[in-house]
Amino acid sequence: MHSTKNDLPQDTRVAIISLCNARLADAIDLQTQCKQAHWNVRGATFIALHELFDSINEQVEDFVDLIAERAAQFGGAVEGTARTAARRSTLAEYPQARSGRDHVDALSSALAAFGKSIRAANDESGRLGDATTADIFTEVSRGIDKWLWFVEAHLDNEG
Rank of each mutant, 00 (worst) to 15 (best):
A120E: 13
N122G: 08
S55I: 05
E79V: 11
A120H: 05
A110N: 03
I136H: 10
R87P: 02
H154D: 09
R87I: 10
A97Y: 03
H154M: 08
N21D: 09
E93G: 06
G43N: 07
T84M: 10
S109N: 13
L91E: 04
L91W: 05
I28C: 05
V151C: 01
K35A: 08
F53E: 04
L52H: 05
R142T: 15
G100H: 00
S125D: 09
R70H: 08
F150R: 07
S141R: 01
F74R: 02
D26P: 10
R87C: 02
R98E: 14
D135M: 12
A131T: 10
A25C: 06
A27F: 04
P9Y: 03
I28F: 00
V41Y: 11
R101F: 06
T90Q: 15
P9L: 04
L19M: 12
S125A: 15
T132L: 10
T32D: 03
S109F: 01
E139R: 09
A15W: 00
T138P: 00
A112N: 08
G129W: 07
G100R: 02
E69D: 14
R127S: 13
D7R: 13
K146L: 11
S18V: 07
L19V: 10
L128F: 06
F74Q: 07
N40E: 03
A68G: 12
V140C: 10
Q73G: 06
I56W: 02
A44K: 13
L148E: 10
F53K: 02
A71C: 09
A153D: 11
E51Y: 04
F74G: 09
S109W: 02
Q73T: 15
S18F: 00
F63H: 15
F114M: 08
H154Y: 12
A86K: 08
D135S: 15
N21I: 01
L128Y: 04
V78Q: 08
K35M: 11
F46P: 03
L30G: 08
Y94T: 02
W149L: 11
R88G: 01
N57V: 06
C34T: 10
R127N: 09
V104P: 10
M1P: 11
G75L: 05
K5N: 15
I118C: 02
K5I: 12
T4W: 01
A72G: 04
A86R: 12
N57A: 15
N57I: 06
E139I: 12
E152F: 00
D130S: 14
L30R: 01
S109T: 14
N6E: 09
I47F: 07
D145N: 12
G159H: 11
E158M: 10
A72M: 09
G126K: 10
V41M: 10
A72T: 02
D65N: 14
K35I: 06
G159Y: 04
R13Y: 06
A85E: 01
S3K: 14
I16W: 00
S125C: 08
A25D: 01
P9E: 14
R83H: 07
L30V: 01
S109L: 13
D156A: 12
T4Q: 03
S3I: 12
A92M: 00
L107I: 14
T132A: 14
I118G: 02
F46R: 12
D145R: 02
N122R: 12
F53T: 09
G129Y: 01
T81F: 03
V140G: 00
F46A: 07
V151M: 03
R101G: 08
F114V: 07
Q31D: 06
G129D: 05
D123V: 13
Q96T: 14
A134I: 00
A120D: 15
R87M: 06
